[in-house]
Design a protein around this nucleic acid. Structure first.
Lengths: 262, 262
DNA sequence: GAGTGGTCTAGACCACTGT
DNA sequence: CAGTGGTCTAGACCACTCC
């Protein structure tokens, strides 16, 4: 015999999967549900908490519980790096056409809202190790958020770090108002004579902190994929480190590993 | 002002981080905690539930709440595919030395407990699409679990699928008692004349189903990384599809993308 | 059987949102 | 202000584990 909250959870899940209520619509209030299922409000809340973690509902304090709308999915393929490299030296008109996020989402630039912030930072122990520079080295920290025009929640939140002295050779690279830079980071690095040799991505997944849940527009409990992208130039130097948080409920990552022939 | 359960959660977390109680040790009972914090048991439970999701404690019904022991971490690097390919044609003595899991964990074969199950299966819609064969095509389904001798919880649970008629050319490949096969799947495929051209890995992350939480030895709420590995041979055929579940609290994936030079 | 965590009640009061 | 969800109480009884 299943417990009360499991029965309620399963019943509501089946209703929602069947489109009742429809995505975006409000569920009956918790008091009404407790009456319908002849139980107490905390028991209903326990059932709803599990549906929230499954990403099926949004709880909105003082408003109600809502069926979550399906969100645009993002496929992030590692071929994006070569694709970006190929574009880095193209004329600006070509680079303007599409960026990496458009590439990932299949959206066009006009559907996307892009947000960038620049600030100076210094390398903590972690970043110093990643760049192989002394702690305290001056860095340029850039924060990126991209979302589609119809959704507030971003596809990702990225904190990208560059060696300040390396990119200062081109003052435009220190200027956030030049964003979105056509062609992206590889094109920016090209202006100071840098060519990438490879990109290393290291990732894991965990439940979000409450700040991440807020930022990525996911309910508590839905997983976050945390990814550190390290870009290495043709001289073997680490030239960019980016920490990216991706909402697990809308993101798929694809990595293709080519193998040498026998 | 923080809520009661947040205060309790934060206080207990700080204690645990400080080594009090030590990993593997029992926390005071929930009744004792409710007395210490002058609150009710359900409030203590709410605090403990959050610590469980963070992976900090294990709740064991009828026994107590325990500080979770740190678990051996696994770094799964996509260079493993080329590494396996290089080994596939080596003599058996070389292949016996180390397998991919030893490569990932830094453990030696004697530290690892390996478990394999074989059974025949037929392609459902999903697998049929992955292999590009008709629904109902006969497959060989292989289930793998590897864990270290000191831990029960596996590093991953993998369901690997091969086209039955393709591998039946070597009857040893249908025989689970031949596992662990020195050199792994690429070596097995080599015996029927297959050379891999590339490996495509597609992954996302989500909270575990209760079955996955059980199987992977993770508390409810800790994320699972779900990965589909597709192996494509030199003729462009899909020759293996593997669905792998990895516990997010112990797994890091590393993918290196080489870029063509300008 | 003793001790533990798991579920549940029937309320209370607080915090938030929208009118 | 009305209506909603968020937190909390002070118990009760059940289920599980170990002795």
């Amino acid at each position: 015999m299943a417990t009360a909250y499991e029965r309620i959870r399963d019943a509501l899940r089946q209703d929602i999967r069947g489109g009742r209520p429809a995505p975006g619509q409000k569920l009956p209030s918790e008091v009404k549900l407790s009456e319908r299922f002849r139980t107490s409000v905390p028991t209903v809340q326990r059932a709803l908490a599990e549906l929230e973690i499954e990403g099926l509902i949004d709880k909105r304090h003082g408003v109600g519980n809502f069926v979550r709308e399906p969100r645009r999915r993002v496929l992030r393929d590692n071929s994006r790096h070569q694709w970006e490299k190929d574009r880095a030296r193209e004329p600006e008109t070509t680079r303007l056409e599409t960026g990496a996020t458009e590439h990932d989402t299949g959206l066009t630039a006009s559907d996307l809202v892009f947000h960038a912030e620049y600030r100076e930072a210094t390398a903590d122990e972690d970043l110093a190790a990643a760049f192989d520079v002394p702690v305290g080295t001056k860095l340029l920290q850039r924060t990126y958020r991209t979302h589609s025009r119809e959704e507030d929640a971003p596809f990702d939140v990225a904190h990208s770090y560059l060696l300040h002295d390396l990119v200062a050779a081109n003052p435009d690279l220190l200027d956030a108002t030049k964003e979105p830079w056509p062609g992206g980071t590889q094109s920016q690095l090209f202006t100071v004579g840098i060519e990438l040799d490879r990109v290393v991505e290291r990732l894991t997944a965990r439940p979000p902190t409450s700040e991440e849940a807020e930022e990525l527009g996911i309910p508590r409990g839905v997983s976050v994929i945390v990814l550190r992208k390290t870009s290495i130039d043709s001289g073997g130097r680490v030239v960019e480190v980016a920490d990216v948080a991706l909402p697990g409920d809308r993101t798929e990552l694809v990595f293709t590993t080519p193998l040498a022939r026998w």
